[in-house]
Each structure stands twice: as C-alpha cells, then as structure tokens.
Design a protein around this nucleic acid. Structure first.
Lengths: 306, 306
DNA sequence: ATTGTCATTTGTCTATGACAAAAGTCATTA
DNA sequence: TAATGACTTTTGTCATAGACAAATGACAAT
C-alpha cells in the first residue's frame, strides 16, 4: 500500500495549477533560488502547498507588471506587502447594483445572483445590459480577483452566468435581418470570449447575422473560415493578456491572408494601446462605438445590392 | 523584414495541436525516428503541416489501442491502411437528422444549422435533445475532426451553438425546486465543458439547483468552493484527454479534501475506464443513468428534512 | 513624441541519461 | 476458465546544464 502524501505536489501538478510551465519552474529555481522543493529519493522535486500559494501570489504580481527577477526570491511577507502597495486601486463610482451583485457572489447566493442578472436584463434591455451590467461586472470581478479579494472560481462562475444570460438575450432578438454577415473570433493566445459574445449580441440587435467560432483561432484557419462562410466582416476581440509584438505579427499576417473584400473590426483593451495598425483594420476603441463602426458596412451592402 | 514562413510549426505549436507534450515528441524522434522535423539555423525543430497531420492520425490510433513503438515509425500510407482496419469504424446507425446537421455545417449554412438545432430542441424536448442530438453530434464532429474531415473551427462553432441552445433550454426549465444543490466543474487539464453543461441541464430538469464554476478547477479551489456554496454534491466531468494516473491522484486528493457530507459524482469517457476508484465516488457510466444516480441524494435530502 | 541602439532579463529550446509507471507475457493457482 | 502474481519490455516524464531568442528597460538621437 502506498502512503498517499496528499500535500506533496510534483512539478507537473505545480505547472498545471499555476500555469507556469515546467521549464520555467526549474529555471526560476536555478536562477532565483525559489521555488525550493524537497526531493524524492531519486531526485524528483516535491513542492509543499505553501510554495504553491506563494507561487500563485507571484503570478498575480507578475500579471500586474512586476518582473520575476525582482520578486521571485522575496519572502511571503514581503510579497504580501508588495501586493498591498500595488496601485490599481482606483474605482471611484461603481453602480450600487453591480456592487450588490458582487456581494451576492461572495456570500455564495448563486440563485439570487442569477435572478438579479435576468432582472437587470429585463430592466435595461439587451443593449443597456451589455453597457451597464456586463462590462462593469467583468471589470470589477477581474480587478477583485487580481487583488485576491475573490477566488478565481467565482470569476469563472460569473463568466458562465453572463454567457447564459447573453444567450437568452440572443434568443429574444427580433431585429429585421439586414443581410450583413460577420465572423467572430479571437487570435491564438487569447482565451477570453466574453468580449466577443457582447459584440455578437450587439450585432444581432442590429440585424446582423453572426458566426462565432470560438477563441484562439490561428490565422490560416480564419482564412479558411472566411472562404467557407463568406462573411462581410471579421470581428476580433483582444484582451490585455497577449503580448503586443505577437499581436502585431498576427495582424500583419491577417492583412495579407484575409481577402480584401472582408472588412476587419478589432476591439478590446489589447488593441487600443497599439500604434501603427494597418489601415485595413477598423479599431473599436469603446464597445459603444460598435454601432458607428458597422454603419459604413451596412451602407456598402445596400449600395452593392442595387 | 522577416519572411513569415506560415506553415512551419514550432515544437510548442505541435505540442498544443496534438496534445502530445514536448518531451514526448522529442523522445519519439529519438527512439522511432519520427517526427523528423527540419531545424532552424540554431537547431530548433520546425515541423511541416504534413507531419502534424500524420501525428494526429497516430494519436487517433493510439487512442484506439495501438502502441507507439509499433506505429510511430510507419509511413502515412501504412497508417491510413491501419486506420481503415481498425474496428471503431463502425458507426452504422447514425440518425439522419444528425448527418444533415453536419452537412449544413460543411456547407457553411450557419443560420440553417442554428434553426435546425432549436427545431430539434422543440421537437425532442430538453431531455431528448441531450440524448439524441447533442451527444451524437458531439461524438460525430469529434470523430470527423480526428479524421481531418472537418476543420477545428467548425467543431468550435458547434460547441458555441450547442452551449447557446443549452442555455436557452435552461431558461425554459420549470421544474419544481427540490432543494438539492450540486456544484459542477472539471479538474485541471480538462478543458471540455460541454459534458458538464449537458449534466447541468438534466439536473435542472429534475429541480436541482446547479452551480457551474467552469473548467479546470484545482482540487483545493474545489474544496474552498464547497465551503462557500455548501452543495449536497459535486459533479465532475472527464473527457478522454487526461492521463489515468493524473486522474487517480486527483481523485484521491478529492477523497481527502472534500467534506464527506458532499457526495461526488463522476462522469464522462475519461472515468469509465478506471479501476479502483474510491467508494466515495458515484461513477456515471452513461449520461442517461444520471437520473438514477441522483435519486439516493434526493431521498437522503428528504429524510434529513423530516 | 517617436525611433533606434544596446544591455539585461527572461523563457524556451536542445541533448542525453535515468528511472518509474504502464502494459504485455507467461506461469501458477483457485 | 479466469484470476493472481512475477517478470520483461515499452513508454513517458524527470533531471541537468548550456545556448539563445524574444521581451523589456534605459538611454540617445532624430
């Protein structure tokens, strides 16, 4: 019978639970002296749960802009102090309704949370719901997670619920079809699909036919998809996760590979920071500018029909 | 200006696209002589799309029971012959409705596809829809993708649409609440959430309150989530992606960390192959056995209320 | 304010050896 | 017959350390 040492974690488990990658963990150990796992009889690393927690905190600080070299070696106490100091603490005017939603969440009142969401959808209508509920709720939960105020699974729960409500809202859309067809996706390395779903709903409200092919689609697959679906436009969503240079490379690739008859819309926090984007791309700086951005497309379509 | 060699894939991309892991790719090359990538100027492997296709086929054969040593070195032609011979090629009675859905997909008729799905939902009712449409459709598209008959983005599109329809179906559920509360998730390394959503819908139809916290939740987070939500049961979904030993390790960890007052249900293709699962776990071998599995829980709940 | 260089930091790749876990083989037992 | 246990082979993952490319920061020049 093998004694199950529950709290001893292998490098694989650590890599999975932190998202750090085995090579990265080993090279941190070599360079910064942390993590500092014990070893099994034959030299395999075994990590303590404390090290896992500390690694999670380090990941959070790195996401906020700290660099590994300056924080990986710090003690837990020092890390905690650093985490407190991080600026990011500006959120002046938050809608009390949104604040209440987050309180429900933290209290584990999921049914009430669901009901409140659908209630807000009915009150505000689909468009208002996107602007006044989804957007701030996502921002606040994201911030709260980064500060460690709510666990990641609550953020996942929110995402689940929001996508359910969006789907329900989509089911109620009764806009007259305009004939415009838009393909939606994100590029590889971008796992967040909520922005795309918000855009999808707004487009449907305008009578646009949408084709959502999920997240992380490589450029050549997008090319193929354009061939198959023959959309009038391709809408891409960028969160803040991806690296600028990677995005630029892929944008150039898109510029070359996507037929020039297809317009390309790009939106999200990851894109508004970029300079020197090819003219090809219509950058949507705020989600409420979407209406404006698709007007030329609708006009073009009408002109072509005549 | 760097020339963009679009079709040359790095080991990382191959690892992602095949699910094979970098170490494994390198050791296959060392031992069996395949894959046999070219190298960049400084020795990094670059794989051709053909090798990717061949690797995908190899993965499929391994899933079907072949062993790496006997197939990795084979040529494409020999692999194809082998794939033909494999039993698994028995899919005699496929519902023509499902077949038609896939044809619509391949033709890019997305609007018709969406309409057909909602039509089937209305016809079959939510329960029938899960058994007779979602399950076979997912299986067929998965198989078709593995055989290279449909591109991955179509599979993603199907996933998107199914989750939309499921959410709509959930919105229409009117079962009387039983008071039973179930937390749903998957373990780290398991990115597929559709199985979980199917279960969620079926549970809601039985008047169960569900809390879906998304995919890939580490065990200690599940522990915390149980503390917050106080569910009567935890339902986990396993696809065929994960390794048996990894699953076993996590199951044991769960067994220890999740309060014994919480029942644990486990379902999906990844779990039914396993032996020596702790008694703790209720294994659901077929999704249509779910009803049976939760009956004891309902009974228990009633008994406790009195 | 943008662009270009340079140094530094950081992550990933490579190679090879070692070994544990899984799977196959085969004899023995109930 | 089928199950059990011991042995062998296969297969995947881990370790080490060097190399280098990609990302970042600092500073100068346009």
């Amino acid at each position: 019978m093998t004694e199950v040492a529950t709290s001893q974690l292998s490098i694989e488990e650590i890599a999975r639970d932190t998202g750090l990658g085995k090579d990265r963990l080993r090279v941190w150990e070599r360079r910064y002296g942390f993590p500092d796992p014990l070893r099994t009889a034959n030299g395999e690393r075994i990590y303590s749960p404390e090290q896992l927690t500390r690694l999670r905190l380090i990941c959070r600080l790195i996401d906020q802009g700290c660099r590994p070299g300056s924080i990986v070696a710090l003690s837990s106490a020092e890390l905690n102090r650093l985490a407190e100091e991080q600026p990011e603490s500006k959120e002046p005017s938050v809608d009390p309704a949104i604040r209440r939603l987050i309180e429900l969440l933290q209290a584990g009142k999921t049914e009430l949370f669901k009901l409140s969401l659908t209630g807000l959808l009915d009150q505000q209508g689909p468009k208002g719901f996107v602007y006044e509920t989804i957007e701030p709720l996502l921002r606040l939960t994201g911030d709260a997670w980064a500060k460690g105020e709510i666990p990641i699974y609550l953020e996942h729960f929110v995402t689940q619920q929001l996508s359910a409500v969006i789907h329900i809202a989509q089911g109620q859309v009764t806009a007259a079809p305009t004939g415009l067809r838009v393909l939606l996706s994100t590029l590889p390395g971008e796992p967040h699909g909520m922005g795309m779903m918000m855009v999808e709903l707004l487009l449907q409200l305008q009578g646009v036919e949408t084709i959502n092919i999920g997240v992380g689609t490589p450029v050549d697959q997008l090319q193929q998809a354009c061939h198959l679906f023959q959309p009038h436009a391709l809408a891409l969503s960028f969160s803040a996760i991806q690296k600028r240079t990677q995005i630029m490379t892929m944008l150039n690739e898109l510029d070359q590979k996507i037929p020039s008859s297809v317009a390309i819309l790009a939106g999200g926090r990851g894109i508004i920071k970029l300079r020197s984007i090819p003219d090809r791309f219509t950058v949507i700086k705020q989600i409420n500018r979407l209406d404006v951005a698709i007007k030329p497309l609708l006009r073009q379509l009408k002109a072509r029909e005549q």
